[in-house]
């Protein structure tokens, strides 16, 4: 039986909870270590190591470096492990000023700046079926190209908002695309595979699965340009308004995944490594 372990760095356990929802792995895999659900002090030798959470403390760094030596394959799971996520938001200078007095803070946004990562599973958190695709190494598994594809809302050509007033309108029309309703939804260029769980009930996509394969090996400007193009095509909202809205803390959680250092001298992650 294939054995796997889950190493939790500084995170919220959302990724672990999603894994518990998967259930199917219980009969086919041996779980060697996952402190959320078992009393275990040492990580045994495992075929697959899932790493969640970001590196925030010396202890995170130490555990990460030590534990990956026990694994044949390392998978970075979720936004925090892949690009810092919430752990990285706390890197803003004003936050660091406060917390540096309490604890030494590490400035290492991605775990793959510290250790070799073989596979990336983006999502906040990834869905159970995505976990199973990774554990089972389903070679023919392909997530939907974009969230847009899985969403299915209609895009009426005559509905062109002039401002990003989505949340101030007081209602969300079912079945109509959120871009047409003046929401900053970036599902058109975000990797699918999440079943559009946010957009279908009426909340705009914030990109937690990262850029689709079209942008993953390009620098982040390419992703931003694509978002602008969608809004230019479907709305009459001034590009400055879109640009300003894209630079919010919430979107910065997700918008810089993968493309964040391509074009900056470091090799981008290969799209075949991303589920």
């Amino acid at each position: 039986m294939k054995r796997f372990a889950v190493l939790q760095l500084s995170g919220c356990s959302g990724c672990e909870m999603a894994l518990l929802n998967a259930e199917e792995w219980m009969d086919d895999f041996d779980l060697g270590y996952m402190t959320l659900v078992m009393s275990a002090y040492h990580v045994p030798e495992v075929e697959v190591l899932l790493v969640t959470g970001g590196v925030r403390t010396e202890e995170d760094l130490y555990r990460l470096r030590r534990v990956v030596r026990r694994a044949e394959e390392v998978v970075a799971v979720g936004t925090c492990a892949i690009s810092g996520g919430i752990a990285n938001l706390g890197n803003r200078p004003e936050v660091r000023e406060v917390f540096l007095t309490h604890e030494k803070r590490i400035h290492l946004p991605h775990i793959d700046t510290v250790v070799t990562v073989d596979c990336y599973l983006p999502g906040c958190p990834p869905t159970p079926e995505l976990y199973m695709a990774v554990l089972r190494k389903e070679s023919d598994f392909k997530a939907a190209t974009s969230v847009c594809q899985e969403c299915g809302r209609n895009k009426p050509k005559d509905m062109r908002p002039t401002q990003l007033l989505g949340f101030q309108q007081g209602e969300v029309l079912p079945d109509v695309c959120l871009v047409n309703q003046g929401y900053l939804c970036i599902g058109a260029s975000t990797r699918g595979g999440c079943r559009a769980l946010c957009t279908i009930p009426g909340y705009p996509c914030v990109g937690c699965r990262g850029p689709s394969n079209a942008f993953i090996e390009k620098e982040s400007e390419a992703w931003f340009t694509s978002i602008h193009r969608v809004f230019e095509h479907m709305t009459d909202i001034p590009p400055e308004e879109i640009e300003a809205a894209l630079r919010s803390p919430q979107l910065s959680l997700f918008l810089f995944q993968f493309a964040d250092y391509a074009g900056g001298g470091q090799a981008p992650r290969h799209k075949d490594q991303v589920v």
Binding site: R56, T57, I86, L89, G90, E94, V95, V98, E103, P249
Partner: peptide, 10 residues
């Protein structure tokens, strides 16, 4: 011991 800074970055 887990400090991520929500009260501040929000």
């Amino acid at each position: 011991m887990e400090l991520r800074g929500f009260e501040y970055f929000l």
